[in-house]
């Protein structure tokens, strides 16, 4: 007795784990149903992979090929060599990284002020943010387009980045998170003579790493995938982002002459979001499940 494992066995004898027959039975049908559905949900991805590795003459064959027995890796090179393809990817990465960095800087500062500094504009700014939260891009794209046109920014990186630098959504999220830092810590720092900016940099930001990461990952994915605004504001191939560029590849190849290369292009383009997804899944899931519920 006395070691942690002993305590564990003691606990299990007092409160035995539920492994009755019905429980085991009910969890096995759960696995079966969930498994079947998971296969259905995964099928489109698998199919994407299979088609991207098939020679073109087999793409339309029936019954469909469900496994690429002779993978043609060449398709991926062909996809990569398409004119402007690499440029689309670089644009998307550049734009979404720039937006995320900008958002993190502006919204964390604002969130700190609203959550932790009692100044006169606090309530007003809070309400402005709340109203903005309800305005989607589909409602404001005409005026924002006109503003960009007025600035001469159409078809530039500025037009793709600047409208998204201020984010009501990110700010709200961080306000929630910053409010949970115990006031005692901040009081102690202030008594020691710390300025607000110092507290912000040295205490608030390090303590809220996971909230900041959640925001960064979610918004990276969102802006990497964004289609509507880049479609409107870009005109030349050298400015198009990956989703817009891909839609042009579909349009120019919609009849399906080169399905395998199209699928390969799609797969290459979704690698960044899938990487982010697998690396940051914990933060993404934690993010989306707390964002809405706690308001």
């Amino acid at each position: 007795m006395g070691t942690p494992s002993d305590v564990m066995t003691l606990r299990e004898t007092v409160w035995p784990k539920k492994t009755s027959r019905t429980a085991r039975y009910s969890s096995s049908w759960r696995i079966v149903i969930t498994g079947v559905l998971a296969i259905v949900f995964f099928a489109p991805f698998w199919w994407m992979v299979v088609i991207s590795l098939l020679p073109n003459r087999l793409v339309l064959s029936f019954p469909p090929q469900w496994f690429p027995f002779h993978p043609e890796w060449r398709n991926f090179f062909l996809a990569w060599e398409q004119p402007y393809f690499a440029r689309y990817l670089i644009n998307s990465l550049l734009v979404s990284v720039a937006i995320v960095i900008g958002q993190l800087m502006t919204s964390s500062l604002a969130a700190y002020a609203i959550a932790r500094i009692s100044f006169s504009g606090r309530r007003l700014v809070y309400w402005v943010l709340l109203v903005t939260l309800m305005i989607p891009g589909q409602v404001t794209f005409i005026p924002v387009f006109l503003i960009m046109k007025h600035l001469g920014w159409i078809d530039t990186y500025q037009a793709l980045i600047v409208p998204f630098i201020g984010s009501a959504f990110a700010t709200f999220w961080l306000i929630q998170s910053f409010r949970q830092v115990p006031q005692v810590i901040l009081d102690a720092a202030q008594i020691d003579g710390a300025e607000h900016f110092w507290i912000f940099m040295r205490i608030i930001l390090p303590l809220n790493k996971s909230a900041l990461l959640s925001i960064a990952f979610l918004n990276f994915v969102f802006h990497y995938n964004d289609f509507f605004w880049p479609l409107i504001v870009t005109q030349s191939n050298s400015m198009r982002t990956f989703p817009v560029g891909l839609s042009y590849l579909i349009a120019s190849d919609g009849s399906g002459t080169m399905w395998n290369v199209l699928m390969a292009s799609t797969l290459i383009g979704i690698v960044p979001v899938l990487l982010i997804f697998f690396v940051g899944q914990r933060f993404l899931v934690q993010g989306i499940s707390s964002a809405g519920i706690k308001e």
Partner: peptide, 13 residues
């Protein structure tokens, strides 16, 4: 300090 901190977000938003 408060106003300076919220300035960028408020401006863009």
């Amino acid at each position: 300090t408060g106003w300076l901190f919220v300035l960028p977000t408020t401006f863009f938003v």
